[in-house]
Design a protein around this nucleic acid. Structure first.
Lengths: 332, 332
DNA sequence: TCTTGTTATGTTACAGGTAACATTCCATAG
DNA sequence: CTATGGAATGTTACCTGTAACATAACAAGA
């Protein structure tokens, strides 16, 4: 049973009484064989439960029609939405997608890229702009188009699509300051590149207005309950705090829930802003102030660019900034 | 540049001045070649940026050491957590994972399975118990171990790991009835198998107590804002409603937010229960009543079972029910 | 009848790594 | 000095589908 070899084209061919070449042609384009033959082959394929085998394709350096996608985390809603955007485009263009995630670790990213490249993917989409030397070498050797998503500020391998996290944060914190908040604290988690960029944006805005920068950071992964915990720690460390700028919506919402438990009025006693603009922020009471990032669009544009390049087009825009929207909501 | 062929073992061998067999041995176990040779090969591999090629492996029916995982949705947090559980185990056991998702469509599932099987995966994890005939045929032909996750009630191909969705819902609705709620409405979205099973559990509990079953369903995908909308529609259709049992936490939380906007007291005026027990339910005000499913554990146990079978062990438990916990929270 | 074109199918060679077996070389024991 | 063994490396064959070219069969036109 487990000894049983998988059926090959040759097995199908033996049943039909032709060479495997005829079967091969039928599978890729049934029109290429006579209609009588089509029926016979179709039956034999059905009977054997023939499963295509990509191995020979890969061997002969053929196009795999597969695109590799690397995201730091699957748990993070942001990337599910980006992936949805990517697939909307790749599906229509007839490309398969292969994901992998690497838990925000450049070493793990290297392993995953090596894995994907070993399957001869035609193109690669990354979510980070910092990579190990071997990663860069492998990508260069593979000679396939690569696009880095999410942030556009850092130098790109070839092409970047996303938003300017530093600038976006600067805008949001500036909006909070304009409303009169003075003691704004930055809440950060999982200290990845984008968390740090957002912190820099926060600091830029604060310093520009002569306000002092305070932050409450942790390496733990974001969650609602972590937002609650960070609020508690913030109020203990900085009792004057009248505003929070959080690196994402989860932390912001968790902080709001905790503030509600404490009986603090939002935004009168404490203003809270998040980042990304997830659906929940619009439903909750109060509506969350947040930086709305075009996540699905980032995916779409990235995929469009990649497919254009796979079709032989040259890069016209090495950096594509899709911009953000500052949503005031009811929490600032 | 794009013409440039990828380096092969032969290219490395040419640089070092040995046959590719020596390079092959080095890559799989450096101990197999002399220490002097190790250094030389290491340098050459580095210099060329050699990328392994899985194609020949696949051709020769070797184990791919890759496991295929099919989930209906990546946006759904539930499956990200299940995947995390799977990977905790597969990573440690030296297996690679290849995911795909199929948007709750059996036809798309078939396409994805065909894709994964074409890469000669060693084992397969599915999230559904309903499949197309061709899917079943392909799996049988492939002759690899398969496990179906999430629900244990429906018949399995070979082995199932998960919870009993019908029974779990029955327990939660019974708990609500025990607290005195009489006019409980079921809120469902994306009418997939598990949504229907949960509805059946709800109906079983209601009928057992002589209460009438009412539900507000939609084929749209779940979201917080959909929960809000469904509450509005429910109150319009059934003004007497004093409780909601929702097919998942997102709908429940969206409904709670909307109830808060309406000024309804929870649970005094309307009780709300969800399904799954995500982190947010424990942070929010009021804490969400929910059926806590062991999502990460489902992934872990599934992966452990699969790996045991890949190691040649026979199936000892065709059905593994991991049970749920009824969490009362503050919303019922 | 012969030529030409078209359609359907066959033949050959090839892609890259590895299992299995073969060979070489040197150290040590007899 | 020769025999033996083991370590290091080499040789060969193989896995499966497809590009490229070759051939066969037949219809239509000259």
């Amino acid at each position: 049973m487990s000894k049983k070899r998988r059926p090959t084209l040759q097995d199908v061919a033996n049943i039909v009484g032709v060479t495997k070449m005829t079967i091969s042609r039928y599978l890729r384009d049934p029109q290429q064989v006579s209609s009588e033959m089509q029926k016979k082959i179709s039956l034999a394929v059905e009977e054997l439960g023939y499963i295509p085998n990509r191995a020979p394709d890969l061997l002969s350096n053929a196009k795999s029609h597969a695109i590799g996608i690397l995201v730091p985390s699957l748990t993070n809603q942001v990337f599910s939405e980006v992936i949805r955007g990517i697939e909307r485009v790749t599906e229509a263009a007839g490309y398969q997608t292969m994901f992998a995630h690497y838990g925000y670790s450049a070493e793990l990213e290297e392993k995953r890229i090596s894995f994907l490249l070993s399957y001869h993917i035609d193109g690669l989409i990354l979510s980070e702009s910092q990579h190990t030397p071997r990663t860069l070498k492998m990508i260069k050797t593979a000679g396939i188009p690569v696009i880095e998503m999410m942030d556009v500020a850092s130098p790109a391998i070839e092409q970047a699509v996303g938003v300017d996290n530093l600038e976006a944060s600067y805008q949001m914190v500036s909006a909070m300051i304009a409303k009169g908040y003075q003691h704004i604290v930055y809440l950060g988690a999982r200290l990845d590149t984008r968390t740090k960029l957002r912190q820099q944006g926060y600091e830029k805005a604060m310093r520009e207005h002569g306000l002092s920068c305070k932050s409450m950071m942790t390496e733990a992964a974001s969650s609602f309950s972590l937002g609650a915990e960070l609020l508690t720690r913030t109020l203990a460390a900085y009792p004057q705090t009248d505003g929070l700028f959080c690196t994402n919506d989860d932390l912001a919402i968790g902080a709001i829930f905790e503030a509600q438990r404490m009986g603090l009025k939002i935004p009168e006693q404490i203003a809270v802003a998040g980042f990304h603009g997830h659906d929940i922020g619009q439903s909750m009471v109060p509506k969350l102030a947040t930086v709305v990032t075009p996540r699905e669009k980032i995916g779409q544009v990235t995929a469009q660019q990649l497919i254009a390049r796979l079709a032989g087009e040259a890069i016209t825009d090495a950096v594509i900034d899709l911009g953000v929207e500052i949503r005031h909501g009811e929490s600032i």
